[in-house]
Each structure stands twice: as C-alpha cells, then as structure tokens.
Design a protein around this nucleic acid. Structure first.
Length: 562
RNA sequence: UGACCAAUGGUGUAAUGGUAGCACUACAGGUUUUGGUUCUGUCAGUCCAGGUUCGAAUCCUGGUUGGUCAACCA
C-alpha cells in the first residue's frame, strides 16, 4: 500500500456552523453522542433545488456522524395537502441518492398531540378561545406594541376541557373556536402572544380521512414530532428562528425530549424563483408546461433537464451552509452539471442550424465509415462508426464569408478539419436570390483522413458535421433562463414576478443527429460536440426523437464576439 | 420606531485570538482533431467608529446596512 494521505488524520477545519455545533455536542456527550435528523416537507407541492440543499444537509450530516435521518411529512393542514405530492417527494429524495431511516407523518401523532393538549389545559397552560379570527388578530397587537389578553383567557380548567373535547367531537363549526397556549400577550415575539395550537377544520385529511375535525398548527406539531422521533438536531430555515422560543416552550411545558432547533439560510438562485407558491402559480397558469418542465428549478424539472443527482449534490456541497442571506449565481449550478457530464456523457455530433456542404472531389454515391471516440475523458467508452459521404450538414455558424482573422472555422479559400474525417478547403459559396447562403463547395484532401500521417497537418479549426444521406432528424428543445432579470422577486410598482418571464425561455427546433440514435433510454446524457449537453426527453418515441438541452458547453468564442 | 438574526473579493464559503484561504465568475496564457476538457497565471475582500489584547475578520460597546416576525399556512 502507498502511504495514506495525511489529511485524514489532521484535525478537521472548515466545518460549517451546524457541524461545529454537532461536534461540540458530541464532545460534551449530549444525546449520548447520537445524531438524528429529519427532513420534514409539507406535501403541498413539488420539491425544488432549495429543498435539495436541505436534504443534502440533513442526510449528509447524519451520514457524516453515523446517525439517521427520518422522512417526515408535515401534514397538519388537510386543505392544502395531497398524496400526489407525497409520492413525488419520495421519488425525488431517492433519485437524489438518499434513503430515509423511517417514513413518518405528523398525522401519525395526532392522538398523542391531543393528549398533550389535554395535559396543558389541565396545567392551566392552554385555553379555548371563542374570539373570532379578527378579534384574535386585533388582540395580538403589532410587533412594536404589546397585545391584549382575550376575555376567554381565564376560563376554568373544567370548562376548557369540556370545550376542547367538544371541539374534537365536531360540535362547533369551522373557525368558531381555537385552542391557545397561555404564554405572554406582551412578548416582543409575536409567536409567544398566546399562539393558536388547534383550529377547527371539517376537512378530509389525505391519511386520517374524517377521523379529525381539529388540526394542530405547525408550532404545536413540529417540535413534538421531532421529540417523539428522538430527533437530536432539528434543522430548518431562518424564517423559523422566531419560532424557536415557542418550540422550546412546548418541549419544556410537556417535559419531553428536547431536540435542538438550528436555523440556516435558505438557498436563492438568480434568474429564478424558489417559493412554492410562485412555482405552483407558474404551473397552474400554464406559464410552464408542468412541475417537471425543464425550465423549473424543481428537482423533477432539473432531472428532466438532464441534471444528474451527483451534480446537484456537489452543488449543495459547494454552496455551503451559513446564516446570512445569499444569492447563488446560476453559473455555479451550470458549472456543477458540466463538471459531472464532462466525465459521463457520450460524445456525438448534431447539427442544430444546418448548412449544406458539398465536397466536389468526393465521388458521388460513395460513402465510408469512420471511427469516432465516444468519450475522450474515458477511453473505456470505446469508439463508434460514423458514415461519411459527399454531401454533409455543417453548422451555419461554422461558416463566415468575411471572416475576421481570429475566426478559426470555414471561410472561402481556407482549410478546416472535419472532426474524425478529412481536412477540407472551401472553394465557393452558393446563394439564393435574396443572397442567403444555401450551400458551400469544398474539396477534400484524401491523404488527411484521421489516423493517416497527413492528418497531423496543422489546421486552425475543427468542426462537426453529419452525412446528409445518413443522419436522422430529431426535435431539440433549447432552454434559456425562465426570467430575464436576476431577481424576479423584486418587482416594480404595479407589476408581478410574471412580468419578468423570459418570452424566449423555450425554443423548439428540428435538428440532425447521428444515425446511432435508436431506442435510447429517457434521460440518457449526451454531449453534442462543440455545442452542449443534451438528454433524451420522456416525450421521445421510436418514431420521434426528442432532446432537451441541459446546458451549453463553455463558449469563449461567442462570448468574445459580444 | 419593538424584538431577533446577519455582515469577509462581483458571487458563495473558510480561517474557532496568531501568515485572510478555497470554489464559481471575469481576464491573460500553455496544451488540444470539441474555441470543450486540462494546466498556469492575473484582478479582487474583513461594513463603520471606538475599546480589550503583545496580537482582532474573530471578543466587547455603539452605529450603519440587510433580513425575519403582526395566517385559525408550513
């Protein structure tokens, strides 16, 4: 064996702040040194890249410290939740490469939560309030001034018990009463001003059906659910920071296992939106085709776009975790997927904007098979055969009539290499009545076929091509950013985020591809040489190939020309 | 005119009282049968003012700026 890298034994540095807390807890023997996390989505929408950050964090930390992670659906609001979302969430987590230790639902704990509510009532720490929603809102006051106590605040324990039980029995209509925790109406923290624990909701729940007509609020359910599961570190986003005193209050009042809530800054990416509400609106109002539209920042959208789980996990790792608000540049996500696909994607040639090229000195009717490398980054992927003939398609942008001297591609009188084939020289241009170029004529040097000694001759450029008689057609969907402004959440007066939708975010074209494409799997990744990474869309069939563009190759040439 | 949280290059994130580092971006160059990859290099940072200390990005005080909180949503 070679000597091991010494970095394995050097002390760890560069921990994120959550890992630092956990390592401190482990050193102090807190929770017997155990680490138990959970990912707690509400099943009311599809997961997006922001959730991926949280998933990677929660599962990643548990793995790093030899702990476990539960999947728990936070399903305390039956009017918004649905099994459709439960299924998609599970699929997305697994696709990302994570497996939960146990699958739970907050609704599993409804009976326990109810019993704990009884306990709090008996201890004088909760009461039934008959005030209307408006009255409660008014009593609560504003952040800068204390609220006032409800007239129902000092009901007797027996009356509270009776009323709460009758709430459960379904004796009262929706919204007529709530159960509140008796804390402090003068607290500077609004969440401590006698927060609502239960509301009456005669609604069918996706799991408990019509068993309940009172449902616990987030604050009354979340910490206790963590507690029941023995979670040690309850990691959530920053907006729950002001809820932490309440989280702690319930755990203490109930004298139950007390997990530690830790908040981190959610992910933002420029040129997109990340709120579930806005994503839902994009789908419902048909600004995109579906939740898995490749322009969406949803996990399923990214998957259909051609992103790999590895690239997303690496992205989550690279952006780090901290408490300050952040906006990640979309170019980092693109870098991560290119980095992964460069290693994995098989190379192929495709022509997106075709221009006919005729090799005048190549015999008509003749063709030959040439060898092409499948992936220069991984020679184990082998080679494939490629037909070559007299009439080819090349990319229109690879020819220019009046070319600047740093244009390495084809122009009249100059040479270029056809990748894996011959060196050709451009002789003339054919145009139509409007002056548009319809074809270009070249001659080839038969001694320069790839592999021949003369092929090592220096030529400035190499371009891709396809034999017109042999190639296939395919639909190619090109995507651009969904919004044309960096921050669509920041709207001018009188506008909404929808006003910043990029009208050109989807472009569908017909293109030519290599004849090799038959019966390929959905989501198979390819690099169209010199263009970008593409994958096969699920709309593909034996009759019609459909590709999605994942991301362009880095392109210093077009950038240079801007 | 409240409470809480945060502040390090253009972006993100380390440095845990002791040399401000890494990644992305941008730019320049070497290699290249992808203007890709890869390699080398360059530009660029501790919000402000005090204090503690031999020494402060780090600790303290005050300010500034940004975020969060007033659903019977989560």
């Amino acid at each position: 064996m070679e000597a091991k890298n010494t970095s394995e034994t050097t002390p760890k540095v560069g921990l994120n702040f959550i890992e630092a807390i956990i390592e401190e807890d482990i050193r102090n023997g807190k929770n017997d040194g155990k680490v138990y996390t959970r990912f707690p989505p509400e099943p009311n929408g599809y997961l997006h890249i922001g959730h991926a950050k949280s998933i990677c964090l929660n599962f990643g930390i548990a793995k790093k410290y030899h702990g476990k992670t539960n999947l728990r659906f936070d399903d305390t609001n039956p009017v918004k939740e649905d099994v459709e979302y439960v299924d998609s969430i599970k699929e997305d987590i697994q696709w990302l490469g994570f497996q939960w230790h146990a699958e739970y639902y907050a609704s599993d704990y409804f009976e326990q939560l109810y019993q704990w509510a009884i306990q709090l009532i008996e201890e004088g720490k909760a009461y039934v309030d008959d005030s209307t929603q408006e009255e409660i809102s008014r009593q609560r006051g504003v952040p800068t001034a204390p609220g006032i106590e409800s007239p129902y605040r000092n009901r007797s324990v027996s009356e509270n018990l009776d009323l709460f039980q009758r709430m459960r029995q379904g004796e009262f209509p929706d919204g007529s009463r709530v159960l509140r925790a008796k804390i402090d109406m003068a607290s500077p923290n609004m969440h401590m001003r006698d927060p609502i624990m239960y509301r009456i909701l005669h609604a069918e729940h996706h799991r408990t059906g019509n068993q309940w007509c009172i449902y616990p609020m987030y604050d009354y359910a979340h910490g206790q659910s963590d507690s029941i599961e023995g979670i040690t570190h309850s990691i959530c986003t920053l907006e729950f920071e002001v809820h932490r005193p309440l989280y702690d209050w319930f755990c203490k009042a109930l004298r139950i296992h007390h997990p530690q809530q830790i908040e981190f800054a959610r992910l933002n990416i420029n040129y997109t939106v990340m709120s579930k509400r806005k994503l839902l609106q994009l789908v419902q109002e048909k600004h995109v085709r579906a939740w898995d539209d490749p322009r969406m920042p949803t996990i399923c959208g990214l998957r259909r776009r051609g992103y790999t789980p590895e690239s997303i996990r690496n992205f989550a790792e690279t952006i780090g975790v901290a408490k300050r608000d952040n906006v990640i540049d979309i170019s980092l996500l693109e870098f991560c997927v290119r980095e992964d696909l460069n290693k994995k994607a098989l190379r192929t040639m495709a022509v997106l904007d075709p221009l006919k090229l005729i090799i005048d000195n190549y015999p008509e009717g003749q063709s030959e098979m040439l060898q092409a490398v499948n992936n220069p980054e991984n020679k184990n992927e082998g080679v494939r055969s490629l037909p070559f003939s007299r009439e080819l398609w090349i990319e229109r942008s690879d020819f220019m009539e009046d070319a600047p001297k740093d244009f390495f591609r084809l122009t009249v009188g100059k040479e270029v290499r056809l990748k894996y084939a011959y060196i050709i020289k451009c002789e003339s241009v054919e145009k139509d009545a409007e002056g548009k170029i319809t074809a270009i004529h070249c001659t080839y040097d038969p001694q320069t076929r790839s592999g021949m000694p003369d092929s090592s001759r220096k030529v400035k450029g190499t371009i891709h091509w396809l034999s017109a008689a042999h190639c296939k057609t395919a639909e190619v969907r090109l995507f651009d950013r969904l919004f044309y402004v960096p921050n669509p959440d920041e709207v001018e007066e009188g506008k909404t985020f929808l006003d910043y939708l990029n009208p050109d975010s989807l472009q569908i074209i017909n293109a030519f591809v290599e004849p090799m494409f038959i019966n390929t799997n959905h989501l198979a990744h390819y690099q169209f040489e010199r263009i970008g990474y593409f994958c096969i869309d699920k709309d593909s069939s034996a009759e019609k190939l459909v590709f999605n563009k994942t991301v362009s190759l880095k392109d210093t040439w077009t950038k240079h020309n801007k």
